[in-house]
Amino acid sequence: MKTQNINIEKEIATEIQNTFHTAEVNIKRNKRIEVKLRNDLIPPFLSYAKNYLTFNHLAHFSCVDWIEQNEFELVYIIYSYEKGVIVLAKTRIDREKAEFVTTRHLWYQAETYERELHEMFGINFKGNDRLNEFILEDWEGIPPYRRDFDTVKYATDNFYTRPGREDAKDVRENVTKINKEEIPEFAKEYSVRSLK
C-alpha cells in the first residue's frame, strides 16, 4: 500500500487522546479515524468535536446489533469540512435495556436518525420527543432490524408466497468452484438457511 500523509489525522488523534484518556483512538486509514468511547462520554465528545475540532457535519448515525455480546453499537459518523477528515465515534449500549440520550441539540438531523433507530432497533432516545411512527405502519412485535427477528419466518407467515421457487439453488457453490474460491464458514450457514 502506498504510504500516505496522515499527519493531520495523527494530530487529531493525539488531541482526542489527550482530552479523553479512556478513549480508544485508531487511525483506520487516510482521512478516517475511529474513536471508541464509554457511552456516557459520547455527548461530551460530540460536543467537543463539533465545537473545538470543527467536526460540524453529522454524516450518518447508525447502529450495529452485536447479539453475541448482548450489546448495540452506536456509530456516529461526523465530518469536518475544514480538515476533510471523517471520525467514527463508536459506543456500546446494553441490548436488553436499550436506552441512550439524544444528540438533537447538536445536530437537528439526528432526530430523524433517532426516529429510525427507535423504529428499527427499538432504542429509546431520552430527550427526543418525536419518537413516533416513522416508516413502518402498524408494526407489532420486535423491531425488524434486530438480529433475533427472523425475517424469513415473518415473511412466510404473513405474506403469501407464490409456489415455484422451492427448487431455487444456492449457485454460490458452482460459482466458487469455477473461480477456485472458498465460502467462509459463517456464510455457509446462511446459505443453508436460505434453502430451507
Partner: peptide, 16 residues
C-alpha cells in the same frame, strides 16, 4: 410483483 423477486424474504413487501 410476480413472486417477490429479490425481496422474497423481506419483512415488509407483499410478494404476489
Amino acid at each position: 410483483t410476480i413472486n417477490g423477486g429479490m425481496y422474497w424474504d423481506s419483512y415488509n413487501t407483499v410478494k404476489a
